[in-house]
Amino acid sequence: MLEARLQTGALLKKVLEAIKELITDANFDCSDNGIALQAMDNSHVALVALLLRHDGFEPYRCDRSLALGVNLVSLSKVLRCAGNDDIITLKADDTADVLSLTFENTDNDRISEYELKLMDIDSEHLGIPDTTYEAVVQMSSAEFARICKDLQVLSDSVQIDVTKEGVKFGAKGELGSGAVTLKQNGNVDKEEEATLIELQQNVSLNFSLKYLVNFTKATPLASRVSLSMSSEVPLLVEYKMEAGYIRYYLAPKIGE
């Protein structure tokens, strides 16, 4: 059985907000390592890989690996019944036809209990090859969200160019064009806002802004985001949390 108690329930609410528009149903794979999820969107253009490590829960117990098939919209509706400061406990039996959720307020005088019906999901697991990326950009997650939103006004795609000087996000559309360049500035006072670039080789890649904007729903989970790129391979957008991560992979756009 699974029993996982999350002191900061708001984290789970934020995680659901970050994935529920990209994918509708997914298996939460529970093991002694923690709770993981991997799913592609319907069009197979983007993939979400989530890990909530066991040490983020107190206590965490999972005797046998379990796959909990969840409709994410339903789960996020139930999670809306939890207060932001509530402690959330997830429980499931080995037969796993329901997921039990308990929300306790911080005064411990209000306890709400919900059960969510689970479903059988035939999901194919994808082997994500270990990749050494040609360019890795680390930047403020809020800045990345702003750039994606701003450029979406102009186009449905963005060209990302990374050189050792900086990273340039450019968009061209019917009404005109726009570009935002962030210079590498590792020694700024505010570490959280620094743009850092590790570069083996300059890259220039095109991606759909609709998906990137969707990924930025993870912004409340981390102040930093990393963009890992190599020519003609999927972009990896990673938000690291205290005990885990949410990674998004996005297939590039190619051709003229």
Binding site: M40, S43, H44, V45, A46, L47, E124, H125, L126, G127, I128, P129, S157, N206, S208, V233, P234, Y249, A251, P252, K253, I254, G255, E256
Partner: peptide, 14 residues
């Protein structure tokens, strides 16, 4: 015109 690729060609089904 740019074409949107999919992930299928990059990641192996296991």
């Amino acid at each position: 015109q740019q074409t949107q690729t999919t992930l299928d060609s990059f990641f192996d089904s296991t």
